[in-house]
Design a protein around this nucleic acid. Structure first.
Length: 111
DNA sequence: AATTTGACCAGTA
DNA sequence: CTACTGGCCAAAT
């Protein structure tokens, strides 16, 4: 029993985010803002980034399908998991053009 | 308890 | 295209 079920466990607040991310289809991407809205937390895109950073190992989540509203990967280019995220997206057939993804083509949901 | 941080975003210049 | 701003607000420090 890791944690007292109930309030002060922040992990619970992240679960709604994770549920939405899990629904992003293979070969498509979503944005922090869209995920926040679909999770019932409109305007709290930063919270999505936090939730993804806190993703437990073992929970296989398509975190790489979440990019920013500009179509770019929101990670430092020469640090972190930038390369891994890009590789995973390309492996799903998503094309990059100057480090950017066309959200009109790959964005989910459409609006 | 107070302050800073942040895998964001839309607007503006 | 880049750079900066104000808004956002829970989590982390």
């Amino acid at each position: 029993m890791p944690v007292r079920p109930g309030k002060s466990d922040p992990t619970e607040r992240f679960e709604k985010i994770w549920q939405v991310v899990r629904r992003i289809p293979y070969g498509r991407v979503s944005t922090y803002g869209r995920v926040a809205r679909l999770a019932g937390l409109p305007g709290r895109s930063r919270f999505v980034g936090l939730a993804l950073r806190q993703t437990p190992v073992g929970l296989s989540l398509p975190w790489h399908r979440v990019i920013n509203a500009s179509g770019r990967i929101s990670l430092p280019k020469f640090r972190g998991h930038y390369a891994e995220q890009k590789t995973r997206l390309i492996a799903e057939g998503i094309l990059f053009r100057n480090e950017k993804v066309n959200l009109l083509r790959y964005g989910w949901p459409n609006v």
